[in-house]
Design a protein around this nucleic acid. Structure first.
Lengths: 202, 202
DNA sequence: ACTGTAGGCCAACGGGTGTTGACACCCCAT
DNA sequence: ATGGGGTGTCAACACCCGTTGGCCTACAGT
């Protein structure tokens, strides 16, 4: 999946390597960083724990390799400006359900510093460019991207990690119906008045 | 904090007990379930690890005791129907910043089953009643509450756990300005057409 | 056919974990 | 004064973790 390295001749151990990575992604996604032990990952991959160390140095290296992937974002310059929210929500829902990498990133990021950093990077690379081209004032792009991230990650959290029953039960179309306008507003709504300092309600 | 038990005479060890709970909340909030070790909690509380076992049986019991608290939700029958979103967002932001319990719940819930369950309960007890009294069709309350939870938890995640810089930098008023309309819409917007099955965009 | 090397397994180390039981202390009721 | 139970410490257990080094095996290049 993540081995488009051009100048790397196929090695005899490639099967093992990918098996390890697949098992690692699954374990990290379902157990988090601490509980995903090298021993369990090795057992899933059908090899000895020491092989993991040989190929990826240590647990950190394994994690780094497991979450190194390119989730290709859709070409948003093609969709109309007021369809960006819908397109983004659809895209992330797809990625989240077909690959467990994002789940791993989310679970690990909560406990592990490296995971949190990588999650930040992913969303910076994914969302910031979109926000910059779509939102009215590019200077506001970081804030707007963070707002979008909060809703996207929040839904992923409640649906795929915490498994709130209603969130799990909702159809993908329902989710798009509800979240798309939120994302759209975060990205494109004019900022307007400087926040209107609360009438009196504490 | 959580000892309003009426018929419990003060024990000589109350100071130790509360010290343990405070240390536990802090550690669970900052480290998550696995990395928050009983030894470290005991050291923070200035006592021996075995005392933790004596007073709370085991690590599970300690966690259960540490996250047993009542976050009193504001009286939402007093606020106008179209101010519910703002009131909710304000309330949760306050709770999140002044008590580390919710942070602990969030961090632990991602890795630990008991934590996830407790998080579900909290939000069911907090949000469902509000949704039931506020949303147009009470039968939709669970879905709407889950949507609200996704945005509230999502912001807590990006701001307090993953620490996305823009999310951390935003002022509380800014957050209310952006999130309140979202929450308001999730709670009160008429559902309208049955989701409109996507014009063609795949 | 021979040999070097990469792929793989096994056993072990050192350290940290939750948890337990035995032992000292102090305070209070008698 | 004298028990006795609540409060606390110490040392240890059994287990699991990440990590290491040595050894065997099988393939590839000559």
């Amino acid at each position: 999946m993540a081995q488009n390295e051009p100048s790397a001749r196929p090695r005899r151990s490639d099967a093992t390597r990918t098996a390890i990575l697949a098992a690692a992604r699954e374990r990290f996604a379902s157990d988090g960083y601490e509980r995903a032990t090298i021993r369990s990952i090795a057992k899933d991959a059908g090899i000895d724990p020491s092989m993991v160390m040989r190929y990826y140095r240590n647990k950190e290296g394994l994690f780094a390799a497991a979450v190194e992937f390119d989730l290709r974002l859709p070409d948003l310059s093609a969709v109309p400006r007021d369809g960006v929210g819908r397109a983004l929500v659809r895209h992330f829902l797809s990625v989240w359900e077909e690959a467990e990498v994002l789940k791993a990133l989310l679970r690990v990021g909560v406990t592990n510093a490296a995971g949190a950093e990588r999650t930040q990077e992913i969303f910076k690379e994914q969302l910031l460019p979109v926000a910059r081209t779509v939102c009215p004032d590019p200077a506001e792009a970081p804030e707007r991207a963070a707002l979008v991230a909060s809703q996207i990650l929040g839904m992923a959290l409640t649906r795929y990690v915490l498994c709130f029953p209603p969130a799990v039960a909702m159809s993908r179309d329902d989710l798009v119906h509800w979240l798309a306008p939120t994302v759209q507003r975060y990205l494109t709504e004019e900022a307007g008045a400087p926040v209107a300092p609360a009438p009196g309600n504490g």
